[in-house]
Simulated scan of single mutants.
Amino acid sequence: MTTHTARPIAPAVLEELRTADDAGRPLRPVTDQEGGAPLRCCLRRSAPGERIALVSYAPLRRWAARTDADPGAYDEQGPVFIHAEECAGPDGDALPFTNSHRALRRYSADGRILGGRLVTDADGFQPALTEALADPEVELVHVRAVEYGCFLYEVGRPHDAHGPAADGPGRA
């Protein structure tokens, strides 16, 4: 079975988001007293006492700016938690946040949604991703929280090591 890797938001993009998020708002760091926030910079949950921020992020818009795609109405912008300061990124390559129901949204190379799938347990992630990326029309998959629809991370084709989350500076 193919192993798929979750892509966090790239360091260059995080640097931009820490200045102004994709809605143009400045960073508002807080100390997370309870912990448990799903961090998109390092793909783990926050620990109590860590400095984090809730920022607006538009993953398809950033990807479209790099690839000349036009996601049209699918150009969503939504809330994501990140560390308020630079962090080391993910520790390992296991798929994170698989302990709850997740929606896997499939997108084409032009940024259009091609469908989705509900994954209800951790064992269902790899097969669902393999199935999604077996479709030649699917360029990338967003893993999202079911309850709020929030973007958690993306998974792309193995040849696309610098996919949408890896967008560089100036891509907003």
Rank of each mutant, 00 (worst) to 15 (best):
residue 132 A to E: 03
residue 155 V to P: 05
residue 168 G to T: 07
residue 96 P to R: 07
residue 23 A to L: 06
residue 148 Y to D: 15
residue 46 S to T: 04
residue 55 V to E: 10
residue 159 H to L: 08
residue 90 P to N: 09
residue 85 E to R: 13
residue 75 D to V: 05
residue 51 R to N: 14
residue 77 Q to L: 12
residue 170 G to N: 06
residue 82 I to Y: 09
residue 165 A to Q: 06
residue 64 A to Q: 06
residue 35 G to F: 08
residue 40 R to L: 07
residue 11 P to K: 01
residue 66 R to G: 11
residue 169 P to L: 13
residue 128 A to K: 00
residue 118 L to W: 03
residue 64 A to H: 12
residue 28 R to N: 14
residue 54 L to D: 14
residue 86 E to G: 07
residue 2 T to R: 11
residue 106 R to I: 02
residue 158 P to S: 14
residue 126 Q to P: 08
residue 116 G to F: 01
residue 166 A to K: 01
residue 61 R to H: 09
residue 1 M to D: 08
residue 39 L to Y: 01
residue 111 G to N: 02
residue 158 P to N: 13
residue 75 D to Q: 10
residue 84 A to L: 04
residue 156 G to W: 05
residue 168 G to C: 03
residue 112 R to Y: 09
residue 29 P to T: 10
residue 36 G to M: 02
residue 157 R to A: 10
residue 99 N to M: 01
residue 112 R to G: 15
residue 160 D to G: 01
residue 129 L to P: 06
residue 81 F to Y: 15
residue 34 E to G: 13
residue 145 A to L: 15
residue 59 P to S: 04
residue 50 E to F: 09
residue 136 P to W: 11
residue 45 R to C: 03
residue 89 G to F: 00
residue 161 A to H: 07
residue 29 P to I: 08
residue 34 E to C: 00
residue 6 A to H: 10
residue 169 P to D: 07
residue 46 S to P: 02
residue 16 E to W: 04
residue 118 L to A: 03
residue 47 A to S: 14
residue 85 E to F: 00
residue 72 G to H: 10
residue 33 Q to C: 01
residue 39 L to S: 12
residue 48 P to Q: 10
residue 154 E to Y: 02
residue 29 P to M: 12
residue 8 P to N: 14
residue 141 V to M: 09
